[in-house]
């Protein structure tokens, strides 16, 4: 039974260091249902590490993480079922077609009756006509879209996007924007990192800056959301300090 979790993602006291290199320390993070959290941060601030920890790929040294109320340490598979990841690499096999890759992941996630679902996500990212092409033959942007299709295939509660705009053309960016809007409207959550201030602020409900091993959330008390100029200024200011 799914516990009635108030937050989609809840992280407490996360610490991670690589040998002598501290990356994250005393990091707290919570993302409500139906919201997009956009993370900004300088290169090497630990954005990718944080996403890889939330994606269950990297084990934090300390701290606890819960996704939809499921604790990562005790129920890792429940957490993995509820998370979709788009990182720098597509996680697809070059010598298989888009459809084969998606069927493979659908089977790994144990999806029942996956054929229509595969067609549906291919349609969503605009790859229906390329479904039976090998991933190797696709352009970078199309590979990224295929990766997005892979991430949303199992309808996760939380989507993790690491600089998703990289390599995407304008059309693909707008496809992704629409998809994310639908996603949060349906009550699901998104955490994404980006270097594009305008894009991030137009897609996010909350903005945070990763600095000094922690997430510093920027206030968004006024009703205008985070598109207000005060947030923009605050983020720019926080990034300058790095």
């Amino acid at each position: 039974m799914t516990a009635p979790a108030t937050e989609a993602v809840q992280a407490r006291g996360i610490e991670k260091s690589y040998g002598e290199w501290p990356v994250l320390w005393n990091l707290d993070l919570s993302v409500p249902w139906g919201q997009t959290l956009v993370l900004f941060g300088a290169n090497g601030a630990g954005k990718t590490t944080l996403l890889r920890i939330l994606a269950t790929h990297v084990r934090p040294d300390e701290g606890s993480i819960a996704v939809a109320g499921h604790n990562l340490r005790t129920r890792p598979d429940e957490v993995r079922r509820r998370i979709g990841v788009v990182g720098h690499r597509s996680l697809l096999y070059d010598d298989m077609t888009c459809r084969e890759n998606l069927v493979y992941y659908a089977r790994l996630f144990g999806l029942k009756d996956h054929k229509p679902r595969v067609d549906e996500v291919l349609e969503k990212v605009g790859l229906s006509n390329r479904a039976d092409h090998r991933v190797r033959t696709l352009s970078n942007g199309m590979q990224k879209r295929a990766a997005i299709a892979r991430a949303i295939l199992h309808q996760p509660d939380v989507l993790l996007l690491d600089e998703p705009e990289g390599g995407l053309d304008l059309e693909s960016v707008s496809i992704l924007g629409t998809l994310l809007a639908e996603w949060t409207d349906a009550g699901r959550s998104v955490i994404m990192t980006t270097h594009d201030l305008d894009l991030g602020l137009s897609w996010g409900h909350q903005a945070g800056v990763l600095r000094g091993g922690k997430v510093h959330l920027q206030d968004n008390n006024d009703s205008s959301g985070i598109t207000g100029s005060n947030i923009r200024q605050a983020v720019a200011e926080a990034l300058k300090g790095c």
Partner: peptide, 9 residues
């Protein structure tokens, strides 16, 4: 290493 670590933090 630990000293370098604390300094970096």
């Amino acid at each position: 290493g630990r000293m370098r670590f604390t300094l970096r933090r």
